[in-house]
């Protein structure tokens, strides 16, 4: 597959994205350098092959962040109630309700026909993570809001304890299903990270929930929030590193543009927040500052992953190069008459 006369032919795939007709202004990342310069591949005028998500920014990244915050807060709140830590209980329950209600608002606002949100509830489809997620979010939000109401009003406390546990049963799923939401797409950087994203989002949720606890619980009660937040931040940092390593070529979207800025900011916040939580838990102000940094780090991760996915979808190299490699691998393994790796499903 070599050009006989390279002087006549442009280097394949060396495409000026500004020369490509942009698809309306709404796709982030259009016109940026989305290309892997070294990769040899052919394409149709350098145009994207798949369509980038039309999900709205900041609605969807914020929904992801709030869902994570709510999910881990609900378990924190239920555990704090069971172990007699009133201020952490209050923080967890309020965090769960605020996250769930806020997340629902962003999820509805993200729809291009928001008035039809309830159409989500006319079917339950396990093949659609958004359907499953709606069926997780709806009971979670109901229980979390009821729990928060009993917490604030101080009435029906027994009921509040029960609904708090019910919300906590859905909480961890709310925090991790969003990873499936992203990776169950044709977006290469998301799909190929389907083993990493659940851990990344789950640990990010732990950092956010723990951070929220550090901000709002008293020094006397905040030790579990501190441990959770530090463990979450460390796991998140390690998973992010592993994900970028394992993605190989597809990780280039994390190394340029806005995704890089967001991910760098996220790491800085997580490190600062974790260190602050480690040494500063016993002072109200330093605990609160660390908690804020951890929440910011968690949110920035979601924004970074979102941006990286848009850039990946817009880059034809992300489709063509890995798929060509897959074909080559399959041919190689057919020749040696072993099961082709990508036909194992058949």
């Amino acid at each position: 597959m070599t050009d006989a006369n390279p002087a006549e032919m442009p280097e394949r795939g060396r495409v000026d994205h500004d020369a490509v007709k942009p698809r309306r202004g709404r796709r982030g990342g259009k016109g940026e350098q989305l290309q892997v310069p070294e990769a040899e591949f052919r394409s149709y005028y350098g145009r994207p092959i798949i369509k980038a998500p039309v999900w709205k920014n900041p609605d969807v990244p914020l929904y992801l962040f709030l869902g994570g915050l709510a999910g881990s807060s609900s378990v924190l709140g239920a555990m704090a109630a069971a172990t007699g830590r009133p201020t952490l209980r209050r923080a967890g329950r309020l965090g769960a309700a605020v996250g769930a209600v806020g997340g629902t608002v962003f999820l509805v606002h993200d729809l291009h026909r928001p008035a039809r949100f309830l159409h989500m509830l006319r079917v339950f489809k396990p093949t659609s993570p958004l359907s499953v997620g709606t069926w997780i979010l709806s009971p979670f939000a109901t229980f979390a809001a009821a729990t928060a109401a009993t917490e604030v009003t101080g009435r029906f406390r027994r009921t509040g304890d029960v609904t708090g546990v019910a919300a906590a049963a859905f909480g961890p799923a709310l925090a991790t299903y969003t990873a499936v939401l992203f990776s169950n797409t044709a977006v290469p950087t998301w799909h190929e990270a389907h083993r990493h994203l659940p851990v990344l989002f789950g640990s990010s949720a732990a950092a956010a929930g723990g951070g929220f606890g550090l901000v709002f619980a008293s020094v006397r009660d905040n030790a579990p929030a501190q441990r959770l937040a530090i463990a979450g931040a460390c796991t998140e940092l390690a998973t992010e590193k592993k994900m970028e390593h394992d993605l190989g070529l597809l990780a280039d979207v994390y190394e340029k543009g806005r995704a890089k800025t967001l991910m760098t900011a996220s790491k800085t916040c997580l490190v600062a927040g974790a260190l602050g939580a480690l040494v500063g838990r016993h002072r109200r102000w330093s605990a609160a500052l660390s908690g804020l940094a951890l929440m910011a780090g968690s949110a920035l991760t979601r924004f970074g992953v979102f941006d990286a996915g848009i850039a990946s979808a817009n880059d034809p190299a992300h489709i063509v190069v890995p798929q060509r490699e897959r074909i080559a691998r399959r041919q190689a393994s057919t020749e040696t008459s072993t099961t082709p790796p990508d036909r194992a499903f058949a």
């Binding site: 369509k51 998500p53 039309v54 291009h112 039809r116 958004l130 044709a186 996915g309």
Partner: peptide, 10 residues
Amino acid sequence: ICNGCGYCVP
């Protein structure tokens, strides 16, 4: 029926 969630697009 479609509510414009956009999931089909990517």
